[in-house]
Every structure is written in structure tokens, then in C-alpha cells.
Simulated scan of single mutants.
Amino acid sequence: MGVPDAAFVALHAHPDDGFTANVTVDSAYRPDAAPLAEIGDESVADLAGVAETLDVTSRREIGSAAAPGLTQTLALTTAVNGVRRELTQSQVYLSLLDVHDPGRRVVVRLILTATAAQHDDVLEDFRDIVATVRPTPDTQNPSE
């Protein structure tokens, strides 16, 4: 699918003007103390390298101290397969903290990328996917 670090990729059934809205999910072990806003800034900086224009249109902390999260929405213009596109990305960052050592965490990132025109139509489906993400106990190693 061209997304080498993604653990999950979902494609929308109905492309908009030749662009297929998609959801990608990846994660990274982040033992550092970087706040989620800083991790979100890292994503913005990565996209800035390929985007013609890029604006963070919203950013909001979500969750709790035990399960922090961040949402941000980006508006960008970029070339996709040689075609200039106005895209919107909704990004959600969820911190999964080790119950025994909260300094150890994995940050799960879920990203919806859609044309600006189709974004609002597929946003609820994305929210449904985000709502399914939760840690599960390690049944193979109950002490973890």
C-alpha cells in the first residue's frame, strides 16, 4: 500500500475525484517524555517536507492523565501521483502507558486522509475506528 510502517490500512470504497480516502494506524515505543503535542509537531514537520501548503487547523488534548490523547486536523496541498490535491488529515494520538511503569509508553497514531471535499463525509467512520482502539491484557504473560 506504500505505507511501510503502518500496522493497518483501510481504504474507503468510494474515491473522490480519483483520490481514495484512507485510514492508517501505526505505533511507536516512546520512552521519552515528549508531550503528545510535540509528537504531533513531528508529524507536521514530516508532512511539511512533501506538502506545498500545510496548516494545522485544530488541535485538542483528549483523554485523561492515565490515558492521554491528542487530536489534530491538518489542511494540506500536495501532489499525489502527479495530481495536485487539497487534502485534510485528521490525526489521533493515543498514549498507552505501562501500568507498572508509566514512563514506558507506546503512542498509537491513527490518521484519516481524505480530499477536503470528502473529509466530513468519512469523518464519522474514522471516529468509529478510533473508538475501537484499546489495550488488551497480555493473556500469554499475565505479569505484564
Rank of each mutant, 00 (worst) to 15 (best):
R134K: 15
A51S: 11
L96R: 14
F8R: 04
T132N: 04
A7K: 13
L97F: 09
A116C: 12
T57L: 09
A33S: 10
G49K: 13
D46W: 05
D26L: 01
Q72K: 07
A51F: 08
D55L: 14
V133P: 04
P4H: 05
V92M: 03
T78E: 12
T88I: 07
V83H: 01
S27Y: 11
G18D: 15
Q72A: 13
V106P: 02
R85Y: 06
H100Q: 13
T77S: 09
L96N: 13
G40V: 00
D16N: 14
E38I: 12
V122I: 03
L97K: 13
L94F: 07
L123G: 00
H100C: 14
R105A: 02
V107Y: 08
A117N: 08
T139Y: 14
Y29F: 06
Q89L: 15
V107P: 04
E52W: 01
Y93D: 05
V99A: 08
D17G: 05
L76P: 02
G49L: 04
L74V: 05
E61Q: 01
V9M: 09
T53E: 10
V50E: 08
P142C: 00
L36F: 13
V99E: 02
S43E: 08
V23T: 11
L112G: 02
G69I: 10
A28L: 12
D46T: 05
V56R: 15
G63R: 10
L94S: 00
D125P: 07
D120C: 14
S143V: 11
V92D: 07
A67D: 10
A10M: 00
R109C: 03
H14I: 11
S43T: 13
D41E: 03
V50Y: 02
G63I: 07
V106G: 06
S64V: 06
T24K: 02
H14Q: 15
A116Y: 07
S90P: 00
G63K: 08
L36R: 07
E86K: 11
A48F: 01
Q89Y: 07
F19I: 07
V83K: 03
R104Q: 05
I111S: 00
R127S: 07
A21W: 14
F19W: 06
P15H: 06
L70W: 04
Y93S: 08
G2K: 12
L47N: 10
E61H: 01
G18F: 15
R127N: 12
A65W: 09
S95N: 09
A13C: 00
D26R: 01
Q140M: 13
Q91P: 09
R109Q: 06
